Amino acid sequence: MELEELLRDREFDEGKKKLNDAIAIAQREWEHVRYSLELVGDIGEFDKEDFMIGVIEEDVIIREPLLSPTKSVSGYSPTFYPMYFVQNLLAMDKQLAKEGYRTIESLYVFVELATKAGERLGLIGSFAMSFGSGYGSARSGWIAEKGYPLERDLFVKMFFKNRKESHDWDFFWTSVRENLNQIFLKFESWQNDEKLYKKEVKSKAIVKPMLV
Rank of each mutant, 00 (worst) to 15 (best):
S133L: 01
S77G: 02
L66K: 14
A22M: 01
D50K: 13
V40P: 09
F159S: 04
H32T: 09
Q87M: 14
S77A: 13
K186Q: 15
M210T: 03
R120T: 05
H167L: 09
E99M: 09
E112C: 00
L211V: 08
V207L: 13
W190E: 08
D42T: 05
F159W: 09
I53G: 05
E64D: 11
T115S: 12
E31S: 12
P65D: 10
Q87D: 13
S36T: 08
K157Y: 10
T103G: 03
S140Y: 12
V73F: 05
G100P: 02
D59C: 03
A26D: 04
A97R: 12
N20A: 13
P209Q: 01
G54M: 05
D193Q: 02
G75D: 13
A205E: 15
E45H: 03
F80M: 05
D9I: 08
S36A: 15
A114M: 04
F171I: 02
E105M: 09
A24L: 12
F46N: 02
E49N: 07
Y76E: 14
N192P: 03
E119Y: 05
G132L: 02
Q182W: 05
V207W: 00
V212K: 14
G134A: 06
F160I: 03
D13G: 07
L37W: 04
L121M: 01
S133D: 09
A205N: 03
E99I: 00
A117Y: 04
L107Y: 07
E11N: 06
T174I: 11
T103I: 06
G134L: 13
E99N: 14
L180E: 01
S36L: 07
K208E: 12
V156T: 10
V33W: 10
E2F: 02
Y101I: 00
E11Q: 14
D42E: 05
L180R: 08
S189Q: 04
V40L: 07
P149G: 04
L96D: 08
D153L: 12
E4A: 06
E14L: 11
D9F: 11
L211A: 05
V212H: 11
G122V: 03
N192W: 00
A114E: 09
K17T: 06
M1F: 07
E119A: 00
F110H: 15
E105Q: 10
L150K: 13
V55E: 15
P82Y: 11
F51C: 03
A128Q: 08
P149A: 06
S72A: 06
R8P: 00
M129Y: 08
D21F: 06
V55D: 13
K71Q: 04
S140D: 06
T79S: 11
Y135H: 10
V207I: 06
W169V: 04
Y148C: 02
L113W: 10
S74Q: 03
R63I: 09
Q87I: 10
N179M: 02
T115C: 04
Q191E: 15
L89K: 10
E29D: 15
H167R: 15
F85Q: 12
I61W: 12
M210Y: 04
W173Q: 15
L121G: 01
L6H: 08
M158H: 12
K186G: 00
I56V: 10
I43H: 05
S140H: 09
K98E: 14
Y81R: 15
R163E: 14
Y84T: 08
Q182L: 12
N179I: 01
I53Q: 08
K198V: 03
A138W: 06
D59I: 11
E99G: 00
